[in-house]
């Protein structure tokens, strides 16, 4: 895997709180890097990756602050990073804000679009909330009667939904 893809995965993992393993599992990592290249151009993409690589190491207590200052809070890179978060979570590239375009110039491919049908299906949002994309990856008959299985992650809330309480009248159907 190229350094570029490595850096992209590292950045994406940090922005989304999904592991590199999860991100690779979508099969879309290179596609999304390509989307950045196509929409905002290789130069800005490389600046974003470089800013990520330049962050203090994870052990360093200032890393989060630095990420806010140099990436999310960057006038140039902030909106691009936010568009990347939204892309991973929904499979949709959301057009950059008007102010960004005014300042840095319009990009011809910058419109709101779904990257591909599978991008919609692989949106991390569904996984994050223990659901499934509307219209695909069906979880199976009757699964909705049980509490959601919300995956845990570093920093996830400790509280779990209440124990299963299948409505008595439906209890029979579930077995």
């Amino acid at each position: 895997m190229s350094n570029r893809v490595e850096a992209f995965l590292g950045l994406s993992a940090e922005l989304t709180a999904f592991s590199r393993f999860d991100l690779l599992g979508t099969g879309l990592a290179e596609r999304y890097l390509g989307t950045l290249d196509t929409v905002v151009g290789g130069e800005i993409t490389d600046m974003l990756l470089a800013a990520f690589v330049a962050l203090p190491p994870p052990e360093d207590g200032t890393r989060a602050q630095a990420l806010r200052a140099t990436i999310l809070g960057s006038e140039l890179l902030g909106d691009v990073a936010r568009a990347l978060i939204k892309l991973w979570y929904s499979g949709t590239w959301f057009e950059l804000p008007y102010a960004w375009t005014q300042r840095f110039g319009p990009k011809s491919a910058d419109a709101t679009f779904v990257v591909s049908p599978d991008a919609y299906i692989e949106g991390l949002l569904w996984k994050a909330i223990g659901a499934h994309p509307a219209g695909a990856k069906a979880p199976g008959y009757g699964s909705w009667a049980y509490p959601p299985k919300i995956p845990t992650f570093p920093g996830s809330p400790t509280s779990k939904p209440d124990a299963v309480s299948v409505h008595p009248q439906n209890a029979g159907i579930m077995s």
Binding site: E14, T16, A128, P154
Partner: peptide, 22 residues
């Protein structure tokens, strides 16, 4: 909700995931 949490509430990473669940 995703747009609001990312664009307006400036959440990312674990805070964003928690925010979406919540």
């Amino acid at each position: 909700d995703l747009l609001e949490l990312v664009d307006d509430r400036n959440l990312y990473g674990a805070d964003l995931r928690r925010g979406l669940i919540d």
